[in-house]
Design a protein around this nucleic acid. Structure first.
Lengths: 142, 142
DNA sequence: TTAATTGTAACCTTTCTTGTTACAACGATA
DNA sequence: TATCGTTGTAACAAGAAAGGTTACAATTAA
């Protein structure tokens, strides 16, 4: 299975906020039309980004702004904020048979190694900042 | 979301086959009882491992054996054999709005970077061989 | 007060995962 | 040849998760 599109939607959302918040009020409806995702989904994502201290959302008046330095926001921050991974990346089958020597030791043999793969993935995400994406984006927009 | 437990079940399955195929016929029912997973699921996984040239399954008479050197079977081979990832790791929202400069460029900005994260994960899986797991397992079994 | 917007609950649909039953095909063996 | 244990596979069901949608109270500027 794949990692939820909430992750790429959240990245897209932040890029929109950054690019347009100087010139206009960036609302969930505006982001919804750029991402082509339902406004309620966007509001939920904005709420999570807000909880993570990445954005500020103005209740009532509307509009979101980024409240952290772009180079201090990594894809890992966004990934964790949007809770795309509850628990671990690799799902394990429940209750392997303890009576079987393989079943009894499978977790000892696999857990650490799979955890390490997952942490490597997270480290990669941590290397990529929103600043890097904005730079790429603005190059493409020219 | 998580990667299907078919992956860890497949690893468990191969460890069972390796450990027990010398002394007994390793059937889908036997593996099912060690993994605590339905025998039909095991047969499907065995079929995929067979298609990938990792195991041989005796139709009729029953029993599976590993037909590759343990150090030539990596977790990536098993991962791909079991088709746990159709397409890419990161699911992308459909049809971002081309009229919006962000929507129009989001794929250009993100695709390569996310692909690279995914490939890093696969590289990690490729570093881990069944031989390494068997060595760990037999240390634990003592 | 009004109008636009957020925050959130509730519900629905679709898709995916896993489990389960059923049964034909296979192959060794009596 | 008949039997028995097994594989291969189809069909279906249950449960979980993702995403969409409607609805509406709460918020805030004007």
């Amino acid at each position: 299975m794949q990692i939820s599109s909430k992750f790429t939607v959240a990245i897209h959302t932040l890029l929109c906020i950054y690019e347009f918040s100087k010139e206009k009020k960036v609302t969930s409806n505006f982001i919804a039309s750029s991402t082509n995702v339902n406004p309620v989904i966007i509001r939920n994502i904005l709420g999570q980004l807000k909880d993570a201290g990445i954005v500020n959302v103005e209740a009532g008046v509307g509009g979101a702004t980024i409240i952290k330095d772009l180079s201090d926001i990594t894809l890992l921050d966004i990934f964790e904020a949007t809770k795309c991974l509850e628990g671990d990346l690799f799902n394990f089958h429940d209750n392997p048979n303890k009576e079987c020597p393989v079943g009894n030791n499978i977790h000892k043999v696999l857990d650490k190694r799979l955890y390490s793969v997952q942490e490597t993935m997270k480290k990669e995400l941590k290397q990529i900042t929103l600043k890097m994406l904005v730079d790429d984006l603005e190059k493409n927009m020219k």
